[in-house]
């Protein structure tokens, strides 16, 4: 499947933030983000530590609800629907927008049950064995684990565990997969595997990935968003500097601070 960047798919926005600010208690961590995430694309978030990349990512599937005191202002829409309106069930949001964390976090269950867990709570009506196999194949983990589906998920290597977590996330069949530095604890070969995986997965899912590795962003992302932080009362306040097609952001950014950051002349 070949994607041409000029097709109509490109303008198909799946998540949009409109002047979104995120607070932890009184502290405004991220201010005024306006961002469109396109369907079936990989969007990378880059920027210095503490500028709010994870914070923005978490607000897309409402995992920030689990942090006491965290509050979102402005609008975040998914297919045009306000994710923070009163009648939205965050549990349903998380079923459609999955997440993979920085540290692999398989459940202390068998490989099989790790995958089946999400499907079971979603009352998956189909054949569970098929779903497990399909998800593991999509995460290119099947060949590694097909003979030890009943072994504990924790007995796998770090890279395998992370792919297990990806398989677990996609077994729920979400539309969007959020990945917060998914490769930061992995060796280069596992990292490469997961990057290849992202290229395959974007045909089925929309992917947003936070990364500190700029080469990684250029390798996997169609779009890249650069965040920065400025001094404000109570600490540093993050904001979105610009979001552009990846090539453009790295070679021909509009903002000087982006240029400084991507060329390494920056904190």
């Amino acid at each position: 499947m070949v994607y041409d960047s000029a097709t109509a798919v490109e303008t198909d926005t799946i998540i949009r933030t409109e002047n979104t600010s995120i607070y932890y208690g009184d502290f405004k961590a991220v201010s005024g983000v306006n961002l469109d995430i396109y369907r079936n694309k990989v969007t990378a978030f880059i920027g210095p530590s503490g500028c709010g990349k994870s914070t923005v990512l978490r607000c897309f599937n409402r995992t920030n609800d689990l942090i006491p005191g965290c509050r979102v202002e402005g609008r975040v829409t998914f297919h045009g629907e306000d994710l923070y309106s009163k009648d939205i069930d965050p549990v349903q949001v998380r079923r459609r927008i999955g997440m993979v964390f920085q540290k692999p976090n398989p459940f202390p269950k068998s490989v099989y049950d790790n995958i089946a867990y999400g499907a079971r709570i979603n009352r998956y009506p189909g054949n569970m064995d098929e779903l497990v196999e399909r998800s593991l194949r999509r995460a290119s983990l099947w060949d590694d684990v097909k003979d030890k589906l009943q072994a504990s998920g924790l007995s796998l290597s770090g890279g395998q565990q992370q792919r297990l977590c990806i398989a677990r996330a996609i077994a729920v069949e979400p539309e969007v997969v959020l990945m917060d530095e998914p490769c930061s604890a992995l060796d280069p070969i596992s990292t490469l595997k997961i990057e290849e995986l992202m290229n395959d997965l974007k045909q089925l899912y929309t992917i947003i990935i936070v990364t500190h590795n700029m080469q990684q962003a250029t390798r996997v992302a169609d779009y890249t968003a650069f965040y920065n932080a400025q001094e404000a009362k109570g600490g540093k306040m993050g904001y979105l500097v610009e979001v552009l097609p990846t090539d453009e952001l790295f070679n021909n950014p509009k903002e000087q601070s982006t240029k400084d950051y991507v060329t390494g002349r920056f904190g």
Binding site: N61, T63, L66, V91, Q92, R94, R95, R96, G98, M99, F101, K103, N105, P106, F107, P108, Y117, G118, R120, I121, N122, C165, R168, A169, V172
Partner: peptide
Amino acid sequence: ELRLGAMALGATRWETILR
């Protein structure tokens, strides 16, 4: 991370606790 992982899959609080 266990709780976060379960919640991020769309588990409710009780599904997270019990399962």
